[in-house]
């Protein structure tokens, strides 16, 4: 499951409804921008840019309990990735980001209905 349901429930509990929704929106915006940045860096073989974006995405994913996405980002942050691996990693991250965004959308719908 892209987003840890226990963590997500904790988060919803710890924050007011307004703050929770604001955070999810912020996260959705971050994930979209950062996964695009990762793809661009991989295409340009920009290893430093790739790592920087992966670091940002890992942080954002950690904030909402998107553990798989966070773990994938941290794995690729280590220096020394060759170009082919960058491209493959970017694809994997993009897929996980998409699944996470879907979970977030569900969470937002649920929040809107509660």
């Amino acid at each position: 499951m892209p987003v840890d349901p226990v963590f997500a429930a904790d988060l919803a509990n710890d924050l007011s409804a307004v703050d929770y929704v604001r955070l999810l929106h912020l996260f959705r915006q971050d994930v979209t921008q950062l996964s695009e940045a990762i793809s661009r860096a991989a295409a340009a073989a920009d290893e430093a840019g790739f790592r920087r974006a992966a670091h940002g995405l890992a942080g954002a994913a950690g904030a909402v309990g998107a553990q798989e996405l966070e773990a994938a980002c941290r794995t690729v942050m280590a220096p020394g990735h060759i170009n082919e691996e960058l491209a493959a990693s970017a694809e994997r991250i993009a897929a996980l980001a998409a699944a996470t965004l879907a979970d977030i959308a569900t969470a937002l719908d649920r929040a809107a209905g509660r």
């Binding site: 924050l15 912020l26 670091h55 940002g56 954002a60 904030a63």
Partner: peptide, 12 residues
């Protein structure tokens, strides 16, 4: 914190 969502979560 340079990561926006993480910074906002901490602030909240």
């Amino acid at each position: 914190e340079d990561q926006q969502a993480q910074a906002e979560l901490a602030r909240l």
